[in-house]
């Protein structure tokens, strides 16, 4: 096995050839890159984020900064706005200046205020009652470990508490006694059962005293009597503008001054209005463009002047949306 080395007859030619090959080597090294994932490997929902790229009758009026740790729940009483964050409730006046601050202990998920000013702060598995003057009231702790309270509504007789962890809504009386569990599947009573795939379960009581509960997994709403009987329901599962998308939506609901339903969604964050009884879509308030980076919002509320308040987790502020001045010409879709 004899291998030999050649003397080159044309050293310059050989040199140039070798230099060229070596050059190619460094060129390939320098430009070496992997194929980038193509469009069919990318999750593209631009076509749906564009749906709400339409002109609406609404505009952003204001953004209220908050001096609170992880603000999570809002409640409106008259022209006072209450926001609950870790260990404190901040009370803002009509000009959004903080006028008072009540202390409690814990990291709240939700807040409700009763007509007489009593406040109910919902933690993941506890409710703390604060009297109208801010002094500590009772604590309701009869919740399970896996309870995850996400919403509270208080009427002058009852307190409704949504438990996303147990997929149920409780009716408590003011003394803190659990009276009824609402929304658990019951075939005899035609209650379909609230499906809660993610920690969002909201409820709201409108001026007529009707209790509306979101059924997130079914992408719609259900109305119940306080005794747990279901009255009516509507579901809109679609990515189109008039419906709700994803596994579980809407995430937040509230009512405006004229009794219409205001909803917000996660995934593609959209604020929309519905006629509540039949679930007819009315209009888009604000769409994905306004919340480009939010996955969901923390809470929504409607203030005394019928403006929509949104607690934005990205900025930890309250964003205020109102009707445009020139919005008399209805541009409802």
């Amino acid at each position: 096995m004899k291998e030999s080395v050649r003397e080159t007859k044309h050293p310059w030619l050989a040199g140039i050839a070798i230099a060229a090959i070596a050059g190619a080597y460094f060129f390939f090294l320098g430009t070496s890159s992997y194929r980038e994932p193509g469009a069919n490997l990318q999750y593209d929902i631009t076509q749906y984020t564009e749906i709400d790229d339409i002109e609406t009758r609404w505009e952003e009026l204001d953004e209220i900064p908050l001096d609170l740790d992880s603000p999570r729940g809002m409640a409106v009483q008259g022209d006072r706005l209450l926001v609950a964050g870790t260990n404190a409730i901040a009370v803002l006046d009509a000009h959004h200046n903080e006028i008072e601050r009540y202390a409690f202990e814990g990291e709240p998920n939700c807040l409700a205020i009763a007509p007489d000013g009593t406040m109910f702060v919902g933690m993941p598995n506890e409710v703390q009652v604060l009297n109208a003057d801010g002094s500590a009231g009772s604590r309701w702790t009869d919740f399970a470990d896996r309870s995850y309270l996400t919403s509270i509504a208080a009427t002058d007789k009852n307190v409704f508490i949504a438990d996303a962890g147990k997929h149920v809504v409780y009716r408590y009386n003011w003394d803190g006694e659990r009276k009824v569990e609402i929304g658990r599947r019951n075939d005899d009573l035609d209650v379909p059962g609230i499906e809660v795939p993610s920690p969002y379960l909201d409820l709201a009581v409108n001026d007529e005293g009707h209790l509306w509960i979101v059924n997130p997994g079914k992408l719609g709403l259900e109305r119940y009597r306080p005794n747990g009987d279901i009255v009516t329901s509507w579901y809109h599962p679609t990515l189109e503008l008039h419906g709700f998308s994803g596994c579980c939506n809407p995430t937040q609901i509230t009512f405006d001054k004229s009794g219409n339903l205001v909803t917000s969604e996660k995934g593609l964050v959209r604020l929309k209005k519905y006629e509540v009884t039949a679930g007819d879509f009315q209009e888009l308030v604000m769409g994905h463009k306004t919340f480009p980076k939010e996955q969901s919002v923390r809470d929504i509320a409607v203030d005394a002047e019928d403006r929509i308040l949104v607690l934005d987790p990205r900025t930890d502020t309250i964003r205020v949306f109102g009707m445009k001045e020139s919005a008399d010409v209805a541009t409802t879709t």
Partner: peptide, 14 residues
């Protein structure tokens, strides 16, 4: 996992 019926990880949007 939410064991969702409408699993968007599973379904093509739309």
């Amino acid at each position: 996992c939410g064991y969702c019926d409408m699993c968007f990880g599973y379904l093509q949007p739309g």
